[in-house]
Amino acid sequence: MLEVLQLQFFQHALIAGIFVSIACGIIGPLVVINRMTFISGGIAHAAYGGIGLAFFLGISPILGAIGFTLVIAFVLAAISIKRKERTDTFIGVIWAVGMAFGVILIDLSPGYNMDLMSFLFGSILVIPTSDLYIMLVLDILILLFIGFNYRELLAMSYDDEFATTMGVPVNVLYFILIALIALTVIVTIRLVGLILVIALLTIPPYISEYYSRSLIKMMGLSIVFNLIFIVAGLYFAYALDITSGATIIATASVGFFLNFFWNWARQRI
């Protein structure tokens, strides 16, 4: 079992897994308590448009996805502040349009047809060192953002109107949060693919919420659960030679149902 750790691609996947656990473990709880799951799903799928654009232009897919997705994310943030009652429709539109745009651009791109599946469901074979640096920078950004704004974010998530009367810049924080969600989604795509990203943002926070009396504890527990699911999932994916993204999510869903039945049983006994 341990010789797998000597393989460079697996080392990269493992380091990426740790970075992703931290990013998703902190951002996921904010997504869950602010009810932003759908908007995160929209951003994840729209990111495919960025990947397509990057291939068409011949630039790094992760950088292309970052630029494109940030623009989409800010548009969605502006809509959800200005036209709250229409937000879900716009998310649905951008969700589909982003993907279609990406597929068409990849069709039109010269040269070989890149592996669509690896972006949809993740692949641990394709994580270059440069991506690890991007993940590290993102983790640092997220930790700084939370470190400086924890109380404001908590107040905004709980009651944005009261937070506004306290002078909390609610809209600015919301835009930054959306941008960080977009970045988290993009780096997580490498590991589990864009279709399954949403699971890492929601399952560990959901399990953690039950055991947490504070947001910071919910974040800490979410990081731990993410680490467990990702490391176990990566190992199973390697050992059984199956798709890493799906295996990680399968591991997380086993955790989800175990937790669910455990709580259910505890309430009956």
Partner: peptide, 11 residues
């Protein structure tokens, strides 16, 4: 929602 009474009042 992961927040205690004390933390709400602290807001």
């Amino acid at each position: 929602f992961p927040i205690s009474v004390y933390d709400v009042v602290m807001m």
